[in-house]
């Protein structure tokens, strides 16, 4: 394995993630734009969004100045061990920060000091798993602070919502979360959802669900139906792009589940902004990128 080539490929992955939205996201935004009423503020917001996406790609600059939490998932085959991968990704992160693909975005929570490199405890946030296959798969996401602040977790039953421990209760949580977010999370948004798990694994799984493509269909028929229902009803709330009012409040709903202990029933919701920066690559042992995943 060529460590230098690996680092170079990871830098390109970061650059593309920060500056170039994947096709499924652009399509969903275009669809929303077509749906919005002519001359409305919602349509106008999506016009600016579309211009911004084109411009960022063209000049290779960050789509949003908040380049977010760097979330990384890697499946590592035998030819690359974990410390080697993490070292390479960290080096690529420092380089990406120097080149301006990433803002200096990692702050020590106790001292308030910005590391200036995007490195520090928990930064980037790595999820690394060994794989028996021969191909390395790396997926990443940049999740900004605005949408992270409107992400939320419910513990069912919930008296305020009248939500019980069933899928109808889950539906109520998702609708409430969409309403509570209004335009504050830079909507139209995407809901990554996990039903069950503990508080920690629930949020992790909710974010992981965001790696699904926006136009896919959940293989679990019950969840597919729930996703469709929340999409339709969420968009009927009329919150619209940026909370300006309009038909496009959600661009996607992706639900997964984890087992829970009998005493707990959490619904964890990772709200993602329209600037849905995620991408991924597969790499062969020679270090070559074999495929872009989005």
């Amino acid at each position: 394995m060529d460590a230098k080539l690996l680092q170079q490929n990871l830098l390109e992955l970061i650059r593309r993630t920060s500056t170039d939205l994947p096709a499924d996201v652009v399509q969903a935004i275009d669809k929303g734009w077509r749906r919005e009423q002519k001359d409305s503020s919602g349509k106008y917001a999506l016009e600016v969004v579309r211009d911004n996406i084109d411009m960022a790609r063209r000049i290779s600059q960050p789509i949003c100045q908040d380049t977010g939490t760097i979330i990384v998932y890697a499946d590592l085959p035998a030819w690359c061990d974990e410390p080697t991968f993490i070292k390479a990704f960290e080096k690529a992160t420092v380089q990406a920060t120097k080149k301006g693909y990433l803002r200096q975005n990692s702050v020590d929570s106790i001292t308030g000091k910005n590391s200036g490199t995007n490195l520090g405890p928990g930064s980037p946030s790595f999820h690394v798993h060994p794989t028996r296959g021969k191909t390395m798969k790396v997926r990443m996401m940049l999740k900004g602070g605005g949408c992270e602040n409107v992400s939320c977790q419910y513990s069912l039953p919930d008296t305020r919502l009248g939500a019980g421990r069933d899928l109808e209760g889950v539906y109520k949580c998702l609708m409430d979360a969409t309403y509570q977010a209004q335009g504050k999370g830079c909507g139209p948004g995407i809901l990554g959802v996990c039903v069950g798990g503990d508080r920690g694994t629930g949020y992790v799984a909710a974010k992981e669900a965001l790696f699904r493509k926006l136009d896919d269909v959940n293989p679990d028929k019950t969840l597919a139906k729930l996703e469709k229902r929340v999409m339709t009803d969420g968009n009927s709330l009329g919150i619209g792009p940026m909370g300006f009012g309009g038909k496009t409040t959600l661009l996607g709903v992706k639900i997964t589940h984890r087992n829970r202990v009998p005493a707990c029933y959490f619904v964890s919701i990772a709200y993602m902004c329209w600037a849905f920066r995620r991408n991924g690559v597969t790499m062969s042992e020679t270090g070559k990128i074999t495929r872009w995943l989005y």
Binding site: M55, G144, G146
Partner: peptide, 13 residues
């Protein structure tokens, strides 16, 4: 005045 959140490039221009 509400600017368009996330539109860092259009606004910088």
């Amino acid at each position: 005045f509400h600017a368009i959140g996330g539109a860092a490039q259009v606004l910088a221009k």
